[in-house]
């Protein structure tokens, strides 16, 4: 665990509850960002942010410091996301996320001008595709490819083995890739 986090946690456990505000200021941006990506709804993201820090404060005694404090917070936030309206959604047919799930678009859109990938529509297409992922796949993709956590950290957070995390991540990436391929094909018509 980060030394600054460790010191703050020890102070809070010793009764200096005001030190929790420092933990909030150090970590609230990443938790909000994660929640916004998972829920895609500002009110849900705010609810997750609030629930996460209230739960972290109330259960700080159970935090043993074996994992990073941010990993522990992400675990609480992931559970909180599952309780939100949109965070629990799983609207994508599972078949589409499978590598053998029927037609595979093979249009090479990577050769399009770079400007295309900077456009708001492209960012929107990625957000849409991520939002349509089933929850277990979305969690892994957001943590690994958007928040930059390691497969081992994601494994601890979601309570699955590292191979299971990697398998879900691959399915999630293929799903998003297929959605982008279709979007780019449509935009060319």
């Amino acid at each position: 665990m980060d030394d600054a986090d460790r010191s703050l946690v020890e102070r809070i456990k010793a009764g200096d509850v005001a030190a929790f505000e420092r933990l909030f200021s150090r970590h609230h941006q990443r938790i909000y960002r994660f929640a916004a990506r998972m829920c895609r709804h500002a009110q849900d993201a705010e609810d997750v942010l609030q629930d996460t820090f209230l739960a972290a404060f109330r259960h700080l005694k159970t935090f043993r410091g074996k994992a990073r404090f941010s990993t522990w917070l992400y675990t609480i936030a992931a559970n909180s996301c599952r309780r939100t309206r949109r965070g629990s959604g799983a609207v994508a047919p599972a078949k589409e996320s499978e590598p053998d799930g029927g037609a595979f678009p093979v249009d090479d859109w990577t050769r399009r001008p770079d400007a295309l990938f900077l456009r708001k529509e492209t960012r929107r297409a990625i957000q849409d595709a991520v939002a349509e992922l089933p929850k277990d796949l979305r969690l892994v993709l957001v943590f690994r490819d958007m928040e930059g956590l390691s497969a081992e950290e994601v494994s601890r957070i979601v309570g699955a083995s590292v191979p299971a995390v990697k398998s879900r991540l691959h399915r999630a990436r293929l799903f998003v890739r297929n959605r982008l391929s279709r979007r780019f094909q449509e935009s060319r018509r």
């Binding site: 916004a36 993201a45 492209t122 993709l141 958007m146 990436r173």
Partner: peptide, 8 residues
């Protein structure tokens, strides 16, 4: 593209 997604 996922890694470059804007921070919120």
């Amino acid at each position: 593209l996922c890694r470059q997604a804007p921070k919120i």
